[in-house]
Design a protein around this nucleic acid. Structure first.
Length: 257
DNA sequence: CAGGATGTTGGGTC
DNA sequence: CGACCCAACATCCT
């Protein structure tokens, strides 16, 4: 699941569920996914604190109120949150629980990519996330132009690069390129930046409403996984190849190089 | 059984 | 240094 819209959905959930409440307990069910600290240290740092969830790209940053610390979460490919009775039996893939009274925010992650970290300040936070470009939903058209200006190589690889722009993943990038009619291998310098920006905004705005890249009619994402996958615009057979290391779907008719 | 899955990193190569 | 490629990570599903 987790690309920018999914993680924004998780951020909203966390906000809605925990707003005004203080962490009472921390339960680390998967010691290995706590990547840089100990359960005791996390417990000590979070106990009695309120959390303010922020998002940068695909990273969820749970800021600890009245402290400089942050609980950092990455959802990998299979992460999500649940909000359960604290005394219910955790799911097999629940890796972390934050209790708030009789309820518990649970971080679940089946494949165990990603994980969670404790950052004591923003310097540590940057070491954890690595270099990130600005959030894809926060930039304006001029920002995008400046970011892409020095970049060369394929359009897909450029948009996927979190150091350049944070938050766009495989489905989003394919969706944006398909809507903008840009071949994923097209040199980024030959892409109409204005059109790319407008398309990115639309795809992000609509995806944010669904809190995911919606696999619905009229979207590439709604077509790409079917057996005889066809372009929702022109009905050509979609192509699939590995580009920039990921399975890429595009329409050979709409998206010329 | 083989292959693939919405993510990131680290190692090479050119 | 930048761009590209690949393998690896862990687990489940088709």
């Amino acid at each position: 699941m987790p690309e920018l819209p999914d993680v924004e959905g998780f951020r909203r959930q966390m906000e809605r569920w925990t707003r005004g409440r203080r962490v009472e307990g921390v339960r680390v069910w998967d010691r290995e996914l706590l990547r840089n600290s100990t359960p005791q240290a996390v417990g000590r740092l979070l106990a009695g604190k309120k959390l303010k969830p922020e998002r940068h790209g695909k990273w969820l940053l749970a800021r600890v109120r009245d402290d400089h610390a942050t609980l950092v979460l990455h959802f990998g490919m299979t992460g999500l949150f649940t909000w359960d009775d604290a005394d219910s039996r955790p799911h097999q893939h629940d890796r972390l629980g934050l209790t708030f009274g009789d309820r518990e925010l649970r971080y679940r992650n089946m494949r165990r990519f990603g994980g969670y970290w404790l950052a004591h300040d923003d310097r540590e936070l940057e070491l954890i996330t690595g270099p990130l470009g600005p959030d894809a939903f926060a930039i304006d058209e001029g920002d995008l132009r400046e970011l892409l200006e020095p970049r060369r190589g394929g359009a897909k690889a450029a948009l996927m690069d979190q150091r350049l722009i944070a938050g766009l993943g495989n489905l989003l990038v394919d969706e944006i390129l398909w809507r903008a009619r840009v071949n994923p291998r097209r040199d980024i310098r030959r892409v109409d930046e204005k059109k790319l920006y407008g398309t990115m905004r639309s795809v992000l705005e609509e995806s944010l409403e669904h809190e995911r890249v919606p696999p619905i009619e009229g979207w590439l994402t709604g077509a790409r996984d079917s057996r005889d996958a066809r372009c929702p615009r022109c009905d050509s057979k979609l192509r699939k190849e590995t580009i920039a290391g990921r399975t890429t779907a595009w329409c050979p008719r709409c998206q010329r190089r």
